[in-house]
């Protein structure tokens, strides 16, 4: 953009600001990261690999990936539907819903866990009814998906909604004039325009879900080989002073999370 200030030599104040900011970034983010990398290198790949393929760790990683994927699959549909309804229709309570969509971002994750236990837990009416049908949610794997759905609800909604609101209606109207039905218009005209924002919302949700801890710790019951997700496993290993095990699983999580973020932004760019 405006590069005039950049072409001139930076004054002393600017250099001072730059170096203090870079040092701050170093101390807060870069040092801890480097420490982990150094520690991982000194442990060696063989040791780390052993920690990853340990059945408990492996199950935790798989559980995190599966629950996150299931959540993203549901969230893409419900999030797009919510964005659609908020952008296109008028109905009583719309302002209220629109404001509260962000609630999962504001509420502390551990509070999320307690909210879900309060509504779906074994001591609530709904919880009793659900277990009566043989579908207990809390302390089961489905509870993890539920917690992730809550926590990631705003991502897809908030990335699709602005695109939908600013979409040029002309194309849809043209399609309608040519006799296309609503569903056909949605599939052929609207949806393709929304895909980049849906993909980027999905990538953010997935990355967030992989690392989710506070709500899952309350909702999942923390049973090894059953409801213990990867972040819970990492915490357990830290508590048990097995730093190598914690680090190995952390590296897997970090890699998956970064890949999903980068892939989503690349896909969204290409589609857009």
């Amino acid at each position: 953009m405006s590069s005039t200030s950049a072409d001139r030599p930076v004054p002393l104040g600017g250099l001072l600001l730059r170096w203090s900011c870079l040092s701050y970034l170093g101390v807060v983010v870069l040092f801890p990261l480097t420490a982990v990398v150094i520690r991982a290198l000194s442990a060696g790949p063989v040791r780390l690999w052993k920690e990853i393929v340990n059945p408990f760790a492996w199950h935790a990683i798989r559980l995190s990936l599966t629950t996150a994927l299931v959540m993203v699959a549901i969230s893409v549909v419900t999030g797009t539907a919510t964005a659609w309804v908020l952008a296109r229709y008028e109905f009583p309570g719309k302002g209220f819903v629109n404001a509260l969509v962000d609630l999962p971002f504001a509420v502390p994750t551990i509070v999320t866990g307690l909210m879900l236990v309060a509504l779906f837990g074994p001591s609530s009416t709904l919880g009793v009814v659900l277990s009566g049908f043989g579908l207990p949610v809390i302390y089961e794997q489905s509870g993890i998906v539920l917690a992730l759905l809550f926590v990631c609800y705003p991502f897809v909604v908030r990335s699709v909604q602005p695109v939908l609101e600013n979409l040029d209606p002309a194309e849809e109207e043209a399609a309608a004039t040519m006799g296309a039905g609503r569903w056909l218009i949605f599939r052929k005209v609207t949806l393709p325009a929304l895909v980049p924002s849906i993909v980027s919302g999905a990538g953010l949700s997935f990355s967030r879900a992989l690392g989710e801890f506070g709500s899952v710790v309350i909702v999942a019951g923390n049973r090894p080989l059953s409801t213990k997700t990867a972040p819970l496993y990492v915490y357990g290993e830290v508590e048990g002073f097995n730093v190598d095990g914690a680090m190995a699983v952390s590296l897997v999580l970090l890699t998956c999370s970064l890949i999903s973020l980068v892939a989503a932004s690349k896909l969204a760019e290409r589609q857009g």
Binding site: L30, G211, M247, L254
Partner: peptide, 23 residues
């Protein structure tokens, strides 16, 4: 710097804690 700035978004809170313990 631009990339490093966003890293905390990709890191699980538990892992952030682990990093501090290691350092």
């Amino acid at each position: 710097m631009d990339g490093v700035l966003d890293l905390p978004f990709a890191v699980s809170p538990v892992i952030a804690g682990l990093m501090l313990i290691i350092l």
